[in-house]
Design a protein around this nucleic acid. Sequence first.
RNA 1: GCCAGGGUAGCUCAGUUGGUAGAGCGAUGGACUGAAAAUCCAUGUGUCGGCGGUUCAAUCCCGUCCCCUGGCA
Length: 308
Amino acid sequence: MNASDRIPVLVIAGATGTGKSAAAMLAAGAFKGAVINADSRQAYADFPVITAQPSPEEQAAVPHRLYGFLTCTEKMSAGKYADLAREAVQAVWAAGLVPILTGGTGLYLNALLGGIAPIPPVPKSVSDAWQERCRREGPQVLHDILRERDPQSAARLHPNDSQRITRALEVLEATGKTLGHWHEQPVESGPFLALRILLEMSLEELAPRLKTRMEAMIGAGAVREAEKAFARCPDPAAPGWSGIGCAELHGYLTGALDFETCKAQWLQHTRDYAKRQITWFKRDKDALRLTPGDADSLLRACAKHLGR
RNA sequence: GCCAGGGUAGCUCAGUUGGUAGAGCGAUGGACUGAAAAUCCAUGUGUCGGCGGUUCAAUCCCGUCCCCUGGCA
């Protein structure tokens, strides 16, 4: 496959609150694009405000894909995302529009653009069983088990890392092969020619914006949104509730947190998250780094990549 | 003004029967292959309120001053 067979895509990444959506709208307007979600939480239908999904006006002005299509109890995953996003990119391109991937979930972007190991789906009963056992017996016990059955994975994983330890065990049980085996398989990635744009801002600069943004969400009906979601799905362990702001508002609605504490935690967790994202994206040495708001550089880089 | 309790890390506090101090939270850095807005790891020098005194040695004991909180006037 040569370069001309590959679909050119624009990728707009960066920490939460750096203005990715605005940049995507700008690029979409300039180059006849469609915005495709690359953010795990914005996939949930019940939380458009709290997860900062594009507004109905924005979605009416420019085609958007993969936003708000999951119910609270449905689980998302990197593999599922890669499949859905690949289809979305191809559909958008076939319709004569430029695909613009926008979002802050670095793992999902890697899964889509770099491919992901072809691990078969693990039955829910298997993963639930390991998770339950991890809750009961603790991650160290499971880490010991993993060391016996898959020493290579155990060596890579910290004994406290409950999530990755259970993943390694469930894959081993469901497929009979270790995670290492699967990661050595050739991966298939989409036929894309991606320009990765990274909106960069220091945490210090970002922090006050995050506070303003949270307050704007509350002003835009975040509490009402959480109440409605609660009426439909009260279980805080449901996948949809795991977004930042959702979990804290759930605590407020059940009386576990007063509103001030709820807001303080919401803001703190948002900040922690932004910091993790900054760390994650630092690793991407090839991305084009732009200052949020630098529309000229953004449009010039996109034009060059698209050959226009 | 008197009495009592306090002044120790950015914050809340613990502690040293005298040998210059440590938790939680925060902060900072990092990891990340199907839960990723998740999960996990690493990092603690601070005039122990100021000044004097006792002592080989004081954050700890004594004196004095300053500040905070509560009670009594």
